[in-house]
Amino acid sequence: MPAGLFGDKYHQLPRSLSREASSAGVFTVIRQDEGRCRLPWLRRSGRKVETAERLAKFLALIAVVSWRIFFVTMSARAKPDAAPDSVLTFAEITALDQIDASRTRPRLQRPTLAAYLLQIAMLGGYLARKHDPPPGNMVVWRGITRLHDIAFGIPIGSSRRCG
């Protein structure tokens, strides 16, 4: 995406593209100077996006990840009794099963999509009290991030090469 593609120096992004942009207001403005993008919310988050091409790649990646999180959350709400392998990967299901098996009282009574989503949300900080609303996208995002870290670490911890 060349720097002069926008026509003028400013371009507006819809607020749904980033959490920081939505908390700031309806639109976030990108200012382009000599092929560099100035995004205050990217600077605060520590992302190194300096050119419009890097910004386009970054936003494409974020769009795919946010779509998957939204899809997992809404699928569990629409069809709570569905099989978890319809939405989750084999590695995610295996990691959640191993986490649940290590507890003294397992929480996964029935292997449904809603039960697995609840476990993912609890990894993200959801308390699952009786009066709590269903888990939202942010808590599912934090839970999936933590689940991927755990799934990455399980094979490392299970292969005892030293000690």
Rank of each mutant, 00 (worst) to 15 (best):
I62L: 12
Y116L: 12
A128E: 09
T94Y: 03
A114W: 06
V65C: 10
A115W: 12
P84D: 07
G157W: 02
L108N: 08
R36I: 09
P14L: 14
A3L: 07
D33E: 09
L42C: 14
A82R: 14
G125Y: 15
A115L: 14
R129W: 06
D8H: 07
A114K: 11
A114C: 07
K130V: 02
M138T: 06
R142G: 02
V29E: 06
E20N: 10
F6C: 00
I62D: 13
A128R: 09
S23E: 06
W67P: 03
L147V: 02
R38F: 13
P106S: 09
T94S: 08
Y126D: 13
G46T: 08
S158A: 12
D100V: 11
D81M: 15
M1P: 00
V64M: 11
Y126M: 14
E34D: 15
A82Q: 13
P134K: 14
V72E: 03
H131S: 11
R43D: 09
V29A: 02
P2L: 03
S45M: 14
F58K: 03
I154V: 05
G124Y: 10
H148S: 00
F27Q: 05
R161P: 04
M74N: 11
P2M: 02
A95L: 00
F71A: 13
E50C: 13
A63M: 15
C37N: 01
P80G: 13
F152P: 00
M1W: 00
M1G: 00
D149M: 04
P106I: 06
L118D: 10
A95G: 01
W141M: 09
P84V: 10
P111T: 12
A3C: 06
I99Y: 07
I154A: 04
L13I: 12
T73G: 07
T89R: 00
